[in-house]
Design a protein around this nucleic acid. Sequence first.
RNA 1: GCUCCAGUGGCGGAAUCGGUAGACGCGUUGGACUUAAAAUCCAAUUGGGCGUAUAACCCAGUGCCAGUUCAAGUCUGGCCUGGAGCACCA
Length: 828
Amino acid sequence: MKESYFPQEIEKKWQKVWEDTKAFKTPDESDKPKYYALSMFPYPSGKLHMGHVRNYTITDVIARFKKANGFNVLHPIGWDSFGLPAENAAMQHNADPETWTDENIAYMTKQLKMLGLSYDWDREVTTCKPDYYKWTQWLFLQLYKKGLVYKKEAAVNWCDKCGTVLANEQVIDGKCWRCDSVVEKKYLSQWFIKITDYAEVLLEDLDKLPGWGDNVKTMQANWIGKSSGAIFKFPVVDAPNGEKIEVPVYTTRPDTVFGITYLVVAPEYKDIEKLTTPENKQAVEEYRANARKMTEIERLSTERVKTGVPLGTHCKNPFNGEIFPLWTADYALVEYGTGAVMAVPTHDTRDFDFAKKYNLPMKVVIENPQNPSDCSSEAYIEPGVLVNSGEFNGMKNDEAKKSITQWAVDKGFGEFKTQYRLRDWLISRQRYWGAPIPVVYCDKCGIQPVPEEQLPVLLPKDVDFKVVGKSPITTSKTFKDTICPICGGHATRETDTMDTFVCSSWYYLRYSDAKNSEKCFDRAKVNHWLPVDQYVGGIEHAILHLLYSRFFTKALRDCGLLDFDEPFKNLLTQGMVLKDGSKMSKSKGNTVDPDEIFENYGADTARLFILSDSPPARDFDWSDAGVEGCYKFLNRVWRLISSNQDNIKLDYKLNFPLSKENDDLVRNVHISIKGITNDISNDFQFNTVISKYRELTNAIYEWQAKKSNLTDEDKNVLSFAIVSLIKLMSPVAVHLTEEAWHDLGGVGSIHEQPWCEWDENLAKSSSITLVVQVNGKVKDKIEVDESLDQEEMKQVALNSEKIKALTEGKTVVKVIVVPKKLVNIVVK
RNA sequence: GCUCCAGUGGCGGAAUCGGUAGACGCGUUGGACUUAAAAUCCAAUUGGGCGUAUAACCCAGUGCCAGUUCAAGUCUGGCCUGGAGCACCA
């Protein structure tokens, strides 16, 4: 072993050995229990960034720890490689998106290998390759057969810069999730996946996921947005032409129906024209035209004053016979509930604002105990007792919700209704670089799915990427025309491709059987490996990817393809990597290039540092000094091993009893093993794991400083300590420990060694510090033998000189003894 | 506005159950080694009483205010600040 630590040299050497020997290949068959550790797979953007380094290092350490603890570990990697950046690069450099993607994958693969990650490269998947997207298309067809895919004309989110529609989940604050452009509304016929069929079970099953953080679960629950209420139908009394129309309304406040003073329909409400009188027609038309023009941003602004216009018609309240006017206003949303709202200004803040502005009447129906008579200053939305509500007077409002709805059900104009905020998933994209939607349009037979045996529908090569205003795929001369699978006549192919989130919604399944060319995956294999035991990735996917994947798993279970219904048993959402307190970004110029770190310090330093400073779930502030510190520490460990090489034997034997100093070091090692094992097992607290590496290293150095000549016992103890340290550090400093293991004469790889075990009796110090408190404040600390019983501890404490001085002349009221820890003396 | 998370030295953070607050590191300061530097090693480092070395002691202290308890960073209630998510969702 060399005297100095040359990480670049040893890292290259071992990376080659691991690659040549396929050291991390995972067999499907094994006597060991399975463990599936997974990182969210990267988009091949060109280069790894520090967020990747953090993500993959965390998962890699988990995978290695589980492997050392006797599991058959699946730890795969792949590429989420469809998407717009490849197409943009193609446009700018006139390159083929595939070539651009392949080059990026090659470069990033090299970087991943330089990080020393323990992937089974034989299971690599790449979503843009036909051997993968064939199965994305096949799964689309299975969902189609199951009735979970449909096409409809709808108002959709349109990003002009990306030239494509977006799913609801991909609109953040009214802007595109990718490019931040303002999203517009367009009316288009598009493909949707019926995720709303699964709204209830996606919500309910969050309870089946104790291994997920509450933050992610509440975000998903909010997104699904379940509410319970009722639908009531209100008959229109004066519709033009004497038509008999009813307006159904969804409400979560059936208890306030006696307080309705007007009714609002959305500007886009389908029957709005039938509800408008000729006198009001012009004003209503103008209002609707205005609403259409407004951008998402304007519409969402909370500062906006509510506006609306009356339709001129009226409804009858079937609960009390009152007549009230109909209005249209854009605070009613056409896509939620029935698109119509019953307005109770006294008990809803929005209705209150609107009624104030337009001088509409108000009627109190729930009494505010603080202020029974007043309703003029603000809406009362707290619980209370019903008034002015006929036979329901005196009822508590939460009971009244049920009774009033039931009354309406009995009379035939109401029903109990559960409503969700979640919308169906729009998967059409007017882009080239995605999986083609496997559907054709026959002149005679209409929409026809492509037969499974014709898959994959390949992306055409003869396209013009510089085309503006339409998808490049439409410029192909060979793609569009085809024949109908039913009648054999002329048909045209769907030119939309699928949202890349479809590809990433099932990749974790494919790893179980990545090279299968006959099937999407083998049933036995997928059910063996899944669900993923530990999933690690960024919080930014809390809704998008994680919700879609949960849906896919449930839908495929219902298609009979899977035996489980949740894909990810445990989820770790890692924090962001920051520099100087803000997110690393090219525009801020505060990025750190992983290549430079590998070159200057080596991958082991990068791995150690990225885990050392913060717990995985928290944001991590990158500091150059911190990297330096980790590098110094690895040098310190290296020196400890290399300077002792002649004293260390792998077949050391400890003969008890040991001398006091040796006993202390042995205990220290056991304490470290226990602590490190527990810290990894409990929520992967790698920052404290690394503290403990340092503590143990310091303890060995301190022990050594007291020794001039080593006896046989000393050498055995030192060997035990150093070999344990190497094993404990092996999941993190993967190259250094491999080199050390090899140079000490170890057989095989350190990464094949079982994890260290500890002895509970030795994993504690030989004496304990008895803390003595007076009235709860620490006044003395006494080293005592741990065998003392409670009475003896009490006596030791009371006999302490310090305590005697403090308690003199006072009455001891009470003495509390915490075994092996503490005595608290309460005095007056 | 609603929901969730967080708040501990100069900084990152530590503290299974309520039981020694500040582990470990970064930074800073001083020292050793060296012609010098780097590297390495040693020491100090929450604030105040405290002013000169040393030793000791005392007081305060985990965002703020209350409470429970022999004992609160940890539990309860109310607030403040920051971050994230949702948002005219009836």
